[in-house]
Design a protein around this nucleic acid. Structure first.
Lengths: 212, 212
DNA sequence: ACCTGAACACCGTTCAAGT
DNA sequence: ACCTGAACACCGTTCAAGT
């Protein structure tokens, strides 16, 4: 992905849209240099501004990280929805097919943007430093899954727990897989492609959520 | 947990066991101040030694982090095995009971030592900075689970994939749950205790792994 | 209101020098 | 072989001062 950071022209004084430029700069640093590469000073430099300028727009580094995580959640939601929309009959598809699409979208996002997943979940952001916007972006992602689970329960396709508990089960499975994959913490069974492994895990999940 | 760091006596010159002391200091910093609190200089100070002394024992900070992660894996393995050993008849227990014990041990470790889980999996350690000892410690943890899955397959209790794929499914589920919990990324369904939610997720997993 | 430059207290890392 | 102290290039954060 090509990330453009709006630089302040050298001859001007105010940037105009420094806040957004810093978020873009942070995303760029993150995707190029990983978590270690993300610093307020480097982001300021990319935006063509002094190292103290960001403090007019973010209380501290965590506030910038929170804004980046918010973007990450939007991308995650978009990835899941894109996979849903690519189904032949998105609205009419069965619970199994929909949940599988959401799971694939989640894993695809994680593999495409590993650094974002770490920012969202990886302890980069100190606990209790969440913002209302970040919470809302997280809820949006969660509701994409939860809506599908709730519909499955209503149809009688799913059983064995309420919508939140079964959503937690599904989220845990795909999140765990994604997280383990991007950390290279698991060696995939030799010769087994990510897609195939993902399919098997989603089947295990689906069967488990259908049983009483 | 009380962590003791062996300080070098002020009047002496050599520490004697600086390497181990630095690992302990790192664990202490991590559990008290989180990922941000872990620094080579602070660890050196806790061990009563100058900030450059650690470089006689660790190539760089990542090497210390790898040593800490190795300890974390040992604790994780111990937690899973303790839960297994607490069963009435550890060896004779069924696949379902054994897998549940392992899952509970994993989640318990994560909740007791959230910072360790982040060090092990959270992107604190740069990719490709793993050591042979760290890899071995990780394999030990993985084999604890895999052995149980393989036995279940042999007994005909489990189906639908080979030992590695089904182990990946189980690991993903409990790891995902643990990771989401310690990041407070999910709100547990109101009134639902962690233990109860864990039980439900482990049941979903168990049912899914029993189906063809 | 927004940005700059100096300043402070921290980092990781290196290197000559001491024991 | 092991440790120290100074040095360097980085951080995050604050604050007086400039536009």
């Amino acid at each position: 992905m090509k990330i453009k950071v709006a630089r302040k022209p050298a001859n001007t004084y105010q940037h105009g849209n420094l806040r957004e430029a810093l978020v873009q700069a942070g995303l760029k640093l993150l995707s190029e240099g990983g978590v270690d590469g993300l610093s307020l000073r480097a982001a300021a430099q990319l935006a063509g501004v002094s190292h103290a300028a960001p403090y007019r727009h973010f209380k501290d580094k965590d506030a910038l990280v929170a804004a980046i995580a918010e973007q990450g959640f939007h991308l995650l939601t978009a990835s899941m929805r894109a996979e849903l929309a690519a189904l032949d009959d998105p609205a009419g598809a069965g619970t199994t097919v929909q949940l599988r699409a959401i799971g694939k979208g989640y894993v695809r996002f994680a593999l495409q943007h590993p650094a974002y997943l770490l920012v969202i979940f990886g302890g980069v952001l100190a606990q209790d430093r969440t913002t209302p916007e970040l919470t809302a972006a997280g809820n949006e992602a969660y509701e994409t899954l939860r809506g599908c689970v709730a519909a499955g329960l209503a149809r009688g396709d799913l059983q064995g727990g309420d919508a939140d508990t079964l959503s937690l089960a599904a989220w845990s499975m795909v999140h765990g897989l994604s997280h383990l994959l991007i950390n290279q913490a698991v060696k995939l069974p030799p010769g087994l492609a990510v897609d195939v492994a993902t399919d098997i895990l989603l089947r295990v999940l689906d069967v488990g959520m259908r049983a009483r």
